[in-house]
Design a protein around this nucleic acid. Structure first.
Lengths: 124, 124
DNA sequence: ATAAGTGCAAATCGTTTGCGTAGGC
DNA sequence: GCCTACGCAAACGATTTGCACTTAT
């Protein structure tokens, strides 16, 4: 409704697709100085409950957030931290096997897949 | 070589397959009181470098550790935190698609797959 | 007026680090 | 003796919480 919350939404709709809480904090502080970190976390939590955004545990570095849009997952490079969006379909077999063999329902969007991106693979 | 390190190995070979640093710390303290947390972390780090153990980022709760043995990955329940070992083969399609379509080399063992286990799915 | 949103500072959790010491070789 | 492993306490990064204050509605 107010100040910071509106700003967060603006930022989310504006530019980059993925933000850590701190990225967001810095961008907020740039646009309107004096906002506190706790506000950022509280706004993110609220937007999460409202199903407007989702968060992803990256394994390397901190949790990141993005507007909710199903059907994609994330590949995160353990070297450079880059995030690659990939369609959910990449999970098809895994999701299905987990379900049939282990009665486990995979949340494809909730944790990143770790590995090394093209760049970092070559520069090893 | 010495005390704590030896004990950690004993514990790892003994019982459960997965330990958080804190699990390990508690078990150590039970077997031989007076060990410090930093020692636990340092031992884990050392054993990691020696390729004796591996760690997994769980997304829910803290990192866990286990003896190194390739060919399996982990399903972690976001509700109860239970860890299920699954063969690497469950990743086949994902790993391959990531490689061919995105030149991304998945590290199947390095991050857990999140979701809900059979128990928690029914008790929702 | 009432409830929600905010800032600030302190607390928490998991993990790391600096430093002085003790023990294996 | 020397080098590594250890214990302790303090430092850290990410995130959460308590509390008092402001501001939409």
């Amino acid at each position: 409704m107010t100040g910071p919350t509106r700003l967060v939404l603006e930022i989310l709709f504006d530019g980059e697709r993925h933000f850590s809480a701190d990225d967001l904090f810095e961008e907020l502080d740039r646009r309107s100085p004096g906002i506190s970190q706790s506000t950022v976390y509280r706004v993110l939590q609220r937007l999460g409950q409202l199903q407007i955004i989702e968060h992803v545990h990256s394994g390397v570095g901190s949790t990141f957030y993005h507007l909710r849009q199903h059907n994609h997952a994330h590949l995160v490079c353990t070297d450079c931290g880059s995030i690659t969006d990939v369609p959910d379909t990449i999970f098809e077999q895994l999701t299905q096997t987990a379900q049939t063999d282990y009665s486990f329902t995979v949340q494809t969007h909730h944790a990143a897949i770790l590995g090394r991106c093209a760049n970092c693979a070559t520069s090893s």
